[in-house]
């Protein structure tokens, strides 16, 4: 069974088979409206989810290499203290790796401020050790205490660690967005099931006649399934369009506002909401099909 041709055949339909079920006025409008409203909401849930994923990524990356340890000590102690710092870091849970920056790297860091010809070797510059943090992270205060005892010249600079709870929050937001999309799909399935059940029981006579003259269950179900699938597709397309327009027209909050600037779609992200109408179609297809076969069990 080949899904694509079957789907296309379903959508193209057989006008004569369609007419065997009389038009079902209010359930039709209910389905279109529900699909549109749900798709509209889904666009926002999707935007939220994508934006928070982006935020978590961006902040997470900045975090990964954010901590540095600066060691300032008299020249004769610098190497000893640096070694001590590296040893401490090696023993600290939550530290993935630690690495001393070499002269060339330090020169590159300073270049923007002092130009390329800085005589690194002759300056009493602090040594820098880059700390890559794992998950869960290390205990900042504990590390500080140990460093003070074993390498008094070392200063842990972890100013961007405060973002860590924000990253966690952004990740949670991302999952909430996805959960919202799941709930929206379920709610739509439920609404379409209700509408389909209403249409099916309003047409119990029709179904009885069709079975009487030798229609197979699939034929009867198709007449309903096609209808509801098309309505859900149309409604969801309208709702998605409106939702995307609304997201595109969100007033820009300016780069400084952080989170709100991020709500919306970026680049290829604009393609994601285009999945909503087909998903709505698939949901409607299965919801109606299940309802139809359930109703058919009452008819011999």
């Amino acid at each position: 069974m080949n899904l694509v041709p079957r789907t296309l055949a379903l959508l193209r339909g057989d006008p004569r088979a369609d007419r065997v079920v009389p038009p079902t006025g209010f359930t039709a409008h209910l389905t279109v409206f529900t699909a549109a409203a749900m798709a509209f909401l889904a666009v926002f849930a999707l935007a939220l989810s994508l934006a928070s994923a982006r935020l978590a990524d961006r902040w997470g990356e900045a975090l990964a290499q954010s901590a540095t340890i600066r060691i300032s000590a008299p020249a004769d102690q610098l190497a000893v203290q640096t070694a001590a710092v590296l040893r401490v870091l090696e023993e600290t849970p939550g530290v993935v790796s630690a690495r001393q920056l070499d002269d060339a790297e330090q020169a590159r860091l300073l270049e923007p401020f002092f130009g390329p010809d800085l005589p690194i070797g002759s300056l009493p510059l602090p040594r820098l050790v880059e700390v890559v943090e794992g998950r869960p992270g290390y205990d900042g205060e504990g590390l500080r205490l140990r460093l003070r005892a074993e390498a008094p010249g070392a200063v842990l600079d972890d100013h961007s660690r405060w973002r860590r709870p924000l990253v966690a929050a952004a990740e949670r937001l991302n999952r909430l967005g996805l959960a919202a999309i799941g709930l929206i799909s379920l709610a739509m399935a439920a609404m379409i099931t209700l509408a389909a059940n209403a249409a099916l029981s309003a047409n119990a006579q029709v179904i009885g006649v069709l079975r009487l003259v030798g229609a197979r269950d699939a034929y009867v179900a198709r007449a309903f399934v096609r209808r509801f699938t098309l309505r859900a597709l149309a409604g969801a397309a309208a709702g998605t369009g409106a939702g995307m327009a609304a997201v595109a027209l969100l007033p820009p909050a300016g780069e400084g506002a952080g989170f709100l600037t991020g709500l919306g779609f970026r680049g290829a992200g604009w393609l994601a909401p285009l999945l909503i109408p087909p998903v709505a179609g698939v949901v409607a297809f299965w919801a109606t099909r299940a309802a139809a076969f359930r109703a058919l069990r009452e008819v011999t």
Binding site: V20, V209, L212, V213, G214
Partner: peptide, 18 residues
């Protein structure tokens, strides 16, 4: 037992369609 919304001709042809 007919499909009351369809003309007689279509009702008679219904078994062909189904």
């Amino acid at each position: 037992r007919f499909l009351d919304h369809l003309p007689v001709r279509d009702n008679i042809a219904l078994p062909l369609d189904t």
